[in-house]
Design a protein around this nucleic acid. Sequence first.
DNA 1: TTGTACGCGTTATCAT
DNA 2: ATGATAACGCGTACAA
Lengths: 351, 351
Amino acid sequence: MKRAPAPDAGPAAASRIHDVAREAGVSTATVSRALRGLDRVSPQTRARVAAAAEALQYVPSPTAASLKSGKTGVIGVVVPFLTRWFFTNLMDGAEALLRQDGYHILVFTIGARGDQRTQVLDHQLLGKRLDGILVLSADLDPHEVALLAGLRVPIVTVGLDLPGCDRVGIDDVHVADTAMSHLIRLGHQRIAYVGGNPAEDVHIATAVNRLAGVTHALHRHGLRLDTRHASHGDWTVHGGVAFAERLFREQTLPTAVLAASDEMAIGVLYAARRRGLDVPHDLSVMGIDDHEMSFTHELTTVRQQVREQGWEAGRLLLDALYADGPPASRREVILGTELVERRSTAPPSAS
Amino acid sequence: MKRAPAPDAGPAAASRIHDVAREAGVSTATVSRALRGLDRVSPQTRARVAAAAEALQYVPSPTAASLKSGKTGVIGVVVPFLTRWFFTNLMDGAEALLRQDGYHILVFTIGARGDQRTQVLDHQLLGKRLDGILVLSADLDPHEVALLAGLRVPIVTVGLDLPGCDRVGIDDVHVADTAMSHLIRLGHQRIAYVGGNPAEDVHIATAVNRLAGVTHALHRHGLRLDTRHASHGDWTVHGGVAFAERLFREQTLPTAVLAASDEMAIGVLYAARRRGLDVPHDLSVMGIDDHEMSFTHELTTVRQQVREQGWEAGRLLLDALYADGPPASRREVILGTELVERRSTAPPSAS
DNA sequence: TTGTACGCGTTATCAT
DNA sequence: ATGATAACGCGTACAA
């Protein structure tokens, strides 16, 4: 507030609703009604108010409006990482939709579980600041869930289930089944799998469900996972590299590797190339997601529509926001997936 | 507000400062002072207030506090895209730092220039909502600049210059010079270059500066850009692919390609492989950035520290926020860069 | 050290 | 259709 008004630019102080009222010769109540397009304002008055507001460069204070109305126009987006393809695409989709309706996005990056997360999702920081919450594939612990639920605002999740909350996602069992079935159909029998860590991803069923899909597909064809060829990574490229390096030390190698994420699959590709293995001749590699960099790696995968999921989540949240009163029922949107064949997979070589 | 209080959970209504005051047997003023750690509160009183606040689950209303103080605790981050590596890493760095000081991040994704941007950076939406602004490599047009400047809050930019604003960045001329010099040192003489579009990136000197660095390096060695081998892309993988496909239709091919971004370089790699060219034997390819997927593509590049730039930008903004009153001087933080040699580059083959 | 009382800028209720 | 006025919840002079 000590910032002196610059002598060379615009109005020294922002104008308030009172100034507009005086300028237009009406009351503040009328200004408020006119500017927000409410009923019961004569066309002439509305025009006069609009002109006055324009002349005075009037911008309503969102703070004051929020204090009175209880609505902030802000949606909290809870996301583990800001730098990973999956999450940023979710955010992008959600933001695009929410912005159309004048909502703003407040970001809460909570990072990997167990870190300093309690500092991020803090009662103090969240309190009365948000109209709604989007939880984007963040594996919240019970305390965090309770914190969010205590806010008493609509919550929509993507990629996980929260009791009573609307939800968007894909069929993870099916997507993994599709991927594994493709490798089996090509003729592979010794297939390695690197999934997510079910112990870490307690609230995110992704790791569990994709493993289930993999197992289903194998069982259907009388196959099973070789424990020496199955492990879990952290969903990242480096996790995939680490998995592959362990794998390559085994006596018998698989003829194909399925990774639960494209990023891990790309890590496997990298490690394989480093070891001099020819993909797909010596080893087929397949992922799940269709990451933006999958095509440049010629990676066969099963595509999910990530941006669309964010978009749908935003839509569900808006619905909940406009329908005040408790929701009639819980809604679920499950988007489809699609096999994308590229050059990283082939039938096992005769050798 | 019609949402009926759930019978099975917490307090029906959030408690206000008045409730805490009554519970602790003091005035609201004392509660305010005690809870915010101000002086002139006796230890006993402070403890009693703290206990009462705890018991009532009291959380101060940020809205009301903002209305009084004029501070919102919110920083606006203006960014072109939410889904690109460079921007998300900047955001991540900035958010990590700003959160330490209790600030929140409000995202403004403005997209490519000329789209529907005016709808995003709107006077109405920005007004009185932000304590400060971070402009992350967004090429604002004059109207948008005026809009932000009119907010009268501290602004820090990354990757561009705004009059009077603190700034973080790298030496783009130097980084491009380093890259081109590396190719020349390897023995290349016919080197193609795909840069950014200087016509589109008016306010971002990146395209211009990197081209300047490229030209400097060439001139120093008596070389120059073949206009048939130089063009501009849109910084993306697809832009790189498109450039390479045009390039490969030329009569004489270069022995090396430098791209102004790793994403474009990766596109060039992809197109080269599709065409059956062996990298680096038939063609050396080099980028700038050290994108997270560059090592999986074995791409030689010049690394810049992106997350660190976001972090530094946050730091500059905090400084400006704490030092009220007009800034004494304009500050610039220029971070270093580093050549990263991988397998996509080699001396030109004898053929 | 603590309490009283006013104001922040808007919206909503009730008159008119 | 419009105006007067009371909240909204907190911070902070100023008084005690």
